[in-house]
Simulated scan of single mutants.
Amino acid sequence: MIENQTLAALQKLIDVVAKLRSPDGGCPWDLAQTPESLTPYVIEEAYEVVDAIQSGDKRAIAEELGDLLLQVVLQAQIASESGDFSLQEIAEGISQKLIRRHPHVFGDVTVENVDEVRQNWETIKAAEKGETPEAQKLSDKLSRYRRSLPPLNAAMKISQKAAGVGFEWNNVDEVWGKFHEELGEFQQALAEETPQRQESELGDLLFAIIQVARWHNLDPSAGLQGTSQRFIQRLQKMEDVIDRPLTDYSLEELDALWQQAKAKLAKD
């Protein structure tokens, strides 16, 4: 009974999206969308799902998962209109992939631990591409991380995989040395180079600090998220006590308000 209700709910969503995309009475905004124009929403909704999960708010998690599911159905609807593929093909494809890559569940393979599951997964994945794990080029693997992960996560993953094959410093002092080298080059670029060169040196500097984070077992994405959250919290405290727009305050007044908000949050 529950399964039938779930399928009925999914079919209703499919029908709603198809109606939104219908040339006969559909929504002009939805009709104007393309797979490319919807890409930012896919990313945005995925991040909002993560934020909801981290908040622990069950209703928010369910809502944000619904928004993400909408993006999948909408992409499938657009693709089906041009005969590329359908939602059915998407579902069948991922089901078949899961069955292939879990022979210890759907076949007769025996595994002892999570590491063996991961190793089997990589072996099967490589075989699907006509390769073996040993024959896969590291650069190809790293390119996939660059394409599929947010920049900070990709940089950390790339760094970890490179270190795993021996492309690594001898000690953390060398890592810090590289950071200071890149900082100097970035400062020089800001003073003398083109914007393109400045951006390149900024990337090198960010990659260097990610190496420092890796050596100290820190998550740079989590660190940056925390800093952004604290900035917003302090700004909220400032806005709670002022009686006019922030733009009406001098820099000195804003700094004083900031310090007060920082101190208050530290006590809470």
Rank of each mutant, 00 (worst) to 15 (best):
G107R: 06
K137Q: 12
V72R: 06
Q188L: 14
I94E: 13
V212D: 09
E185T: 01
L254G: 04
T123N: 12
Q229V: 01
Y145R: 00
L202Q: 06
D57N: 10
S22H: 11
L31I: 02
E252R: 07
S139G: 07
G203V: 05
A135F: 04
Q77S: 15
L74Q: 14
E89W: 02
A162I: 00
A162V: 00
S148N: 13
A266G: 01
K58S: 13
L149K: 05
E192Y: 03
Q211T: 02
A191Q: 11
L246Y: 03
E182K: 06
G164L: 05
D240M: 08
E45F: 04
Y47T: 00
D67N: 04
W121S: 14
Q225C: 11
L98W: 02
P133L: 05
R21P: 02
A18T: 05
L235F: 15
L265K: 06
N113E: 05
D30V: 02
Q229M: 15
I43F: 14
E48N: 02
Q54M: 04
K264L: 08
Q211M: 08
E185A: 13
L152G: 05
L13S: 08
A162K: 03
W121Y: 15
Q236S: 13
D243N: 06
R100S: 13
I124C: 07
E131H: 09
T110E: 14
A76E: 13
A155Y: 10
N171F: 00
I94L: 11
A9P: 03
L251G: 10
A261F: 09
N171E: 03
A222H: 13
E252I: 08
T6I: 03
L98F: 07
A191I: 05
S159C: 04
L31A: 12
W258N: 07
D84T: 08
R101S: 14
E89K: 00
T39R: 07
D108A: 14
D268E: 15
K12L: 14
A208T: 01
P103T: 01
G203M: 11
G166W: 04
R234H: 14
A261H: 05
T227Y: 15
N171T: 04
P35G: 07
Q160A: 08
N120T: 02
R144H: 05
L65I: 09
L183Y: 15
W176K: 07
N153Y: 07
Q188T: 02
G166F: 07
E199P: 01
E181K: 04
V111F: 02
L142F: 08
E239I: 15
K137N: 12
I209Y: 09
K58T: 15
G83N: 09
E192I: 02
D15N: 09
Q96D: 15
I2Q: 14
V114A: 15
V172C: 02
A154Y: 07
E253Y: 05
E92C: 08
G184S: 10
W176G: 05
A9R: 10
L7A: 12
A135P: 04
V165W: 05
Q259I: 08
